[in-house]
Computed example of a mutant assay.
Amino acid sequence: MTSRQNIGTAALTGLAPAVWGSTYLVATELLPPDRPLLATTMRALPGGLVLLALGRKLPVGVWWWRASALGVLNIGAFNFLLFFAAYRLPGGIAAVIMSAQPMFVVILAALLLGDRIRALHALACAMGAGGVVLLVLRGAVPLDALGVLAAVGGALCMALGITLTKRWGRPEGVGLLTFTGWQLTAGGLVLVPFWLSLEGLPERLTGSNVIGFAHLITLGAVLSYFVWFRGIERLPAVAVSFLALGSPVVATLLGYLVKGETLSALQIVGMAVILGAVVLGQRPPPNRPQSDRRQPELMRRAC
């Protein structure tokens, strides 16, 4: 893939975390309050079932458990932990903790994909975390232990999901929309018993609730995860992980534009630092000897 194609693919893939950056606004303004399991299930399952019906193809063999694992990591567990942390952690603490996700991907890519840990990526990780701190923190805020654990767990789920999606790819002859449908369905189904037993059905749905759920299902799930998985296929895992840092930037801008929140000079500096981290994260690795380039492929074939 040429450099220009890489830039285009990265820009398109970055639309997914940009859409996810609207999740907090949608959850607080449009969805029933304090129902993270309902929000996560509705975000994943309806769209997944529609894609399954359109694709008319189910996983075969090893892909039953692989699709289930990816669905839980990329969608089910990740989104639930994200919603849970957002409800329990004030002042953007969840976003700060989640910004550790690229660092986790750097480590996992070295362990599972044979990628080298580069000083450039370490610098980009530090810049990304520092930029998020400038962007979302508002002085001293109390920390909720369960919220912190949920945010760390969400970052780990996303990191492992990105890495395993890159390692396993998708089965031959299966379209990307169908592959996305497998994961959305698996991620939604695993949450249904928890949702029904712990939260139950809401007493009523307002027009705003319906609009919020429609946004989560279409833009927040089907379209965004389609371009996200497309990006994972075409870009290095580490490069994709840094694109996720765009989510808190969009969340902050929406708070300023829609809710009338303030936007300070430090926050603008934070956005610039995050953008620099994302750009650094897209830098391709230096050319390696042929024997080195073959090693990850040999590892994947061995699995």
Rank of each mutant, 00 (worst) to 15 (best):
L108F: 15
T163C: 11
A237P: 12
P202S: 04
A10P: 03
L30Q: 09
L58E: 03
H121E: 13
S99D: 02
M299W: 14
V141T: 12
Q183G: 03
A272V: 15
G48E: 05
Y24N: 03
A155L: 12
I268E: 01
A85F: 05
V238M: 07
A77N: 04
L137R: 15
A39D: 07
M1A: 12
T9C: 06
V238Y: 02
A27K: 06
L45F: 06
G200H: 06
N74C: 11
M1V: 05
T252K: 13
G76C: 00
G181W: 03
P296C: 01
G76T: 07
I93R: 00
R167E: 01
R300C: 11
L45Y: 12
L266W: 10
V72F: 13
I117H: 06
G154E: 09
Y24D: 05
G131S: 08
Q183T: 01
L184P: 05
G76M: 02
E233V: 03
V106I: 15
F229P: 04
Y24Q: 12
Y87Q: 14
A122E: 00
L149W: 13
A122F: 04
T41Y: 01
A251K: 10
Y24W: 13
L253N: 05
N287C: 01
P102N: 12
M271Y: 04
A16H: 06
S22G: 10
E199R: 13
R43Y: 11
G61P: 08
G270P: 00
P171C: 02
A265Q: 09
A129C: 14
A277T: 05
T180D: 02
R43I: 02
S197I: 01
C125T: 06
P284C: 04
L160P: 11
A186Q: 02
G128K: 04
L143Q: 08
W63L: 05
M42L: 15
W182F: 14
R118E: 15
L164V: 06
L263D: 01
P33G: 03
A239L: 01
L70G: 02
L38N: 04
I211L: 15
P236V: 05
A44N: 03
L176C: 03
M42P: 03
T28N: 07
A86D: 14
V72C: 09
M271D: 08
D292I: 06
A69Y: 07
T23E: 01
L198T: 09
S264F: 05
G147M: 12
G153A: 10
Q5K: 04
V249Y: 03
I217T: 07
L70H: 01
A100F: 15
A11M: 10
F80T: 15
R138P: 10
G270T: 06
F84D: 14
P202D: 03
W20F: 09
G220R: 05
P171G: 05
L257M: 14
A100E: 00
G114K: 11
A272E: 10
P171T: 06
A126Q: 02
D115P: 09
E172T: 13
E199D: 12
L196A: 14
A119M: 13
L49T: 13
V174R: 11
